[in-house]
Design a protein around this nucleic acid. Structure first.
Lengths: 194, 194
DNA sequence: ACTTGAGTGAACAGCAGGGTTCATCCAAAA
DNA sequence: TTTTGGATGAACCCTGCTGTTCACTCAAGT
């Protein structure tokens, strides 16, 4: 029963790999069952048998892709209690993840509206969580709207993409810039880091 | 010959109105000929007769929509020679335009990849121009990569949307924040405005 | 009164994609 | 050796959109 299930798993894996590749190149919205089947070297029918609906397939893709990434770990950011230092640590971790996964993340966020409801919520609440962790050590976190908005902005994938992909900045530069911006929004005015 | 052409123009206008409405609600990518015809109260064939191809229709929509907007006027920004003051004037003008046209601009920029090549270029070069005008009075404009990147970022529609739409800031707050950010990137450190 | 042409309705062919059924093959497991 | 079930190929039906043709109506312009 081992070699048998191994083959089955192999087919399934080839389907997931093909789907991940398409999600990262043409984007989820333009990824079709026929396309996945073709790339995986199986028939559409085989795809249908392995995955009952789009949501199941997308979940499998998401899990598999994440398993070969190094996701940001906000829990580690919390070890730093200085607001600006936590900001630096957190944004660095986040932007590293964004850069590594740029191709996939660009397509995912571009096609956000077409994604299964559940996954949209997960992505949104992830960003909320990142924001809250970065916001927490600021004394004025609860009262300063600008601060909240600015941290939200800094945590957004599109912000990273605009600064680093579109305008060629390094991650360090982007972290510096956004830290400075957030510090300003918080009411403090540190010098910009070298 | 006047009433005749008037009627023809009326039909054409109803088609353009319908197309603009759909571009601003479901977005250009999901706007179909059948949908436009239905909303305009004509048949698909009539749409085909008035507009030879998608590009012609899109151009007409773009022109008509713009004609009822108040676009930003970078030429007026140039009358201000102080870098930070020009920034304030320019971003205010731009963000006002963004807020007024939010619905349409959101769909347009979201579906950017599906748009006719020519229009993509126009939009991109518009943003480049805005950036260049804002950058011009800065002495370090040519040498400071961070400054260029930050101004590009500030001029982007998605930046406005993130700060104001997603996070509920006022335009004035967004202008303050981005001005502060850009000033920091330029190496100066003004106080944040009240 | 006659001509012109914008607009109509219906029908056609084509394409891409979704989703399903059925008989069949074939290799691993029993 | 027989059974099991993953995978296949081919055939369907359906939906939605594109683009085109033809005969026709009706009203404005002449």
């Amino acid at each position: 029963m081992s070699r048998r299930t191994e083959q089955i798993g192999g087919t399934r894996q080839r389907i997931v790999d093909a789907a991940v590749a398409l999600h990262g190149s043409v984007g989820p919205a333009r990824t079709t069952i026929a396309g996945i089947a073709g790339k995986a070297g199986v028939t559409r029918l085989t795809v249908y048998r392995h995955f009952a609906d789009d949501e199941a397939l997308f979940s499998a893709c998401s899990a598999h892709w994440l398993s070969q990434q190094r996701p940001p770990v906000p829990a580690e950011w919390s070890r730093e209690n200085d607001p600006l230092e936590r900001l630096r640590v957190g944004l660095s971790d986040l932007y590293r993840f964004y850069r590594d996964g740029e191709a996939m993340l660009t397509r995912i966020y571009a096609d956000l509206a077409e994604l299964p409801e559940a996954h949209r919520k997960v992505l949104a609440s992830r960003n909320d969580h990142f924001r809250n962790v970065l916001l927490e050590p600021f004394p004025e976190a609860a009262t300063n709207n600008r601060l909240r908005a600015t941290v939200s902005h800094g945590v957004s994938f599109w912000t990273w993409r605009s600064l680093c992909h579109d305008n060629g900045l390094s991650n360090d530069d982007a972290v510096d810039i956004m830290s400075t911006l957030i510090a300003a929004a918080a009411g403090t005015h540190p010098s910009i880091a070298p």
